[in-house]
């Protein structure tokens, strides 16, 4: 399982990866990116099974990232891990085909609940 993790905070990327492993996906191969633009390039390069992306990032935000992917016909599984989860953002994410939006702070159980229906 290949996972692209996009977040401008190195600390948060580390915590997302650690939580992913705690949620049972300890064998996942992780590709870290600092923003949506780098994430977009990496998705094209490595064809991951999943993208976990922050929303609020410099250069290209998370919603711009998934919108660019879908515009190119790429339907990679995509979930947001972000510090705010308003109804408007959840609707915007779902409209682009995002599987879930996990609001920070989060727990391994929240990752497990979001990922189990998709990856088992």
């Amino acid at each position: 399982m290949k996972v692209v993790v996009a977040d401008d905070s190195r600390a948060m990327r580390m915590i997302v990866v650690r939580t992913l492993r705690q949620a049972g996906y300890d064998g996942a191969e992780i590709i870290e990116c600092e923003d949506g633009a780098e994430g977009l390039a990496k998705v094209k390069e490595v064809s991951p099974d999943l993208v976990l992306s922050d929303w609020n990032m410099p250069n290209m935000s998370g919603i711009e990232f998934i919108t660019a992917l879908r515009a190119e016909g790429n339907d990679v599984k995509f979930g947001f891990v972000t510090s705010e989860g308003s109804d408007a953002m959840r609707e915007q994410a779902a409209a682009q085909g995002a599987l879930f939006l996990i609001a920070k702070p989060f727990t391994a159980d929240m990752f497990s609940d979001a990922l189990k229906p998709v990856f088992g």
């Binding site: 989860g85 408007a88 609001a103």
Partner: peptide
């Protein structure tokens, strides 16, 4: 960012959070 994003959810919407 985390504390601010969560406080933002208690404030009038719609609004945008900066980096």
């Amino acid at each position: 960012n985390m504390v601010g994003g969560n406080i933002k959810s208690l404030l009038p919407e719609p609004s945008t959070l900066s980096l």
